[in-house]
């Protein structure tokens, strides 16, 4: 079986691809992994112990056609049974064109567009209400006047964030205006102004089968993070109310595919901050404690029976570390000139 994964940028701001590929390889060493990369220097292109074959793709901003043609080329020249996209920027296209991929014999396991839209921060308030949890006070703004009014109402410090991407803590109006402009220039409107909530940052990784059933869940606390807020060290926890919220989310919205819930938790008060409709970069943490979600998703894709048990232990730690890989520049040359290389 040949499975392609994107997000093989295993840097200090890692994509989830390497964690997904590693999980698949550990579950079944006969699986061949294809790395879909947007940069010839992505570390995953050189990690032949996880990625068997690498291809460079054009950026998702260039449209779906070049990506689709590249996937067809991979299928024809190397073989390709399924693709697991893991990056926010490419997900809308993969979701929109999942039927075209299916027709071409390339399986995916993704939410539909309607489900995908749920993650829009505009909709998180309604989801929180349906799941009986809290959502921070949030104002939607489209211009500077509305921004001023919103920050006055919410007070400083507060968070200025895009509807899908980017979030900055601001302490003054000039700072708020600066980030309002920066985010709207890059990602458009609306911009959201949100109150800051206190508590522990707890996250849940999971996947749903699209019929309301869970494929597995793992909750963690981020113990240390990078300056971008990415997990470096973490620990598994069993916060039963939080796990129940994730279970209800899958049941209520019949979620199909992987997801991550980002929450702030103060005792039993759960505040929803974000829903990511994909595996997070720490996906291998769940695999390491016995909940191999990439493999479970793959099993559902291919109608195989899989272990869907929810058991994992609390108090298991993930410790990320840096490592140097020494290789020949020939590999870079192949990627730069041919756009592909053996892992």
């Amino acid at each position: 079986m040949i499975i392609a994964v994107s997000g093989v940028n295993d840097t200090d701001n890692p994509g989830p691809g390497i964690g997904v590929a590693r999980s698949l390889k550990e579950a079944d060493s006969s699986i061949k992994t294809v790395g879909l990369s947007y940069d010839v220097q992505d570390p995953g292109n050189f990690m032949d112990f996880v990625i068997d074959k690498s291809y460079v793709l054009t950026y998702p901003s260039q449209g779906w056609e070049p990506i689709f043609n590249r996937l067809l080329y991979i299928k024809e020249s190397y073989g390709l049974d399924a693709v697991i996209p893991t990056l926010d920027a490419e997900l809308p296209s993969y979701i929109k064109y999942q039927d075209d991929l299916k027709e071409a014999g390339i399986k995916t396991f993704l939410p539909n567009l309607e489900q995908f839209e749920l993650r829009s921060k505009e909709n998180l308030g309604d989801i929180s209400e349906a799941l009986k949890i809290s959502y921070p006070k949030t104002k939607k703004v489209f211009n500077i006047d509305q921004l001023k009014k919103a920050v006055n109402e919410i007070g400083f410090p507060c968070v200025v964030k895009g509807n899908y991407y980017k979030a900055y803590k601001v302490k003054s109006l000039p700072e708020a205006v600066y980030y309002f402009t920066e985010i709207s220039n890059e990602w458009g409107f609306p911009i959201l102004v949100q109150e800051i909530v206190n508590g522990d940052e707890l996250n849940v990784i999971g996947a749903g089968d699209g019929k309301g059933n869970l494929l597995g869940l793992v909750a963690i606390k981020k113990m240390t993070t990078t300056h971008l807020g990415k997990i470096w060290n973490g620990v598994t926890i069993r916060h039963e109310k939080l796990l129940k919220v994730a279970e209800d989310f899958v049941a209520e919205y019949k979620w199909r595919g992987p997801f991550e819930l980002e929450c702030i938790v103060d005792e039993d008060n759960i505040i929803l901050i974000e829903i990511n409709p994909r595996f997070p970069a720490w996906v291998y943490f769940a695999t390491g404690v016995g909940v191999n979600l990439p493999k479970r998703v793959l099993d559902v894709m291919f109608d195989k029976n899989s272990d869907m048990s929810g058991d994992y232990e609390s108090g298991k730690m993930m410790v990320r570390y840096t490592y140097e890989l020494i290789t020949d520049i020939e590999k870079l040359s192949e990627l730069a000139t041919k756009g592909e290389s053996n892992g």
């Binding site: 522990d200 707890l202 963690i220 606390k221 113990m223 973490g234 620990v235 598994t236 926890i237 069993r238 916060h239 039963e240 938790v265 609390s314 108090g315």
Partner: peptide, 9 residues
Amino acid sequence: AFDPTSGET
């Protein structure tokens, strides 16, 4: 000491 609910140590 480890709190398995919150992850606090």
